[in-house]
């Protein structure tokens, strides 16, 4: 059965190409949400196996989205991979990423092979 991935990122071009790559590389069903304020409602209806979440977004940042996932019973256990183009290590350790409690953070530009491995590991645990 295809694993379901939710991409939450305000960069429409990025999500479009990542979706194409993921769908070409494995048996994935990918849904895109470019508006972070709708991430939780989209996730509730899509029920993803894993979420790839951007950090710096207008509306709600990745940390806020992650916190909403945590407080939602049906999403609490969905693994989240944070993708970030942040370059400042202090921002990574002090900012939304650290607050989110997400254990998996991958830098942008994304190494696709690494991302696929991380998705495999994270979804295998479930």
């Amino acid at each position: 059965m295809a694993r379901k991935i939710l991409l939450v990122d305000d960069e429409a071009g990025f999500t479009q190409l990542l979706k194409m790559n993921l769908e070409k590389s494995g048996d994935f069903e990918v849904t895109i949400e470019n508006d972070s304020t709708r991430a939780v409602s989209t996730a509730r209806s899509f029920l993803p196996d894993i979420v790839l979440l951007d950090v710096v977004m207008p509306g709600m940042d990745g940390g806020d989205v992650q916190a909403q996932f945590q407080s939602s019973p049906e999403l609490r256990n969905v693994p989240v991979i944070m993708l970030t183009a942040l370059v400042d290590s202090a921002e990574l350790s002090d900012g939304a990423v650290a607050q989110s409690g997400s254990s998996i953070v991958l830098p942008k530009p994304v190494d696709l092979d690494l991302l696929l491995r991380v998705i495999d590991e994270a979804t295998a645990v479930i």
Binding site: F14, L17, N21, K24, A85, L86, P109, L112
Partner: peptide, 24 residues
Amino acid sequence: AAGVAHEVKNPLALLLLGVDYLSN
């Protein structure tokens, strides 16, 4: 600088995804 770097990294990320897709 950090913000501008972030803004440049986004298109770079997109470019890499394009290269990944086409290189197969």
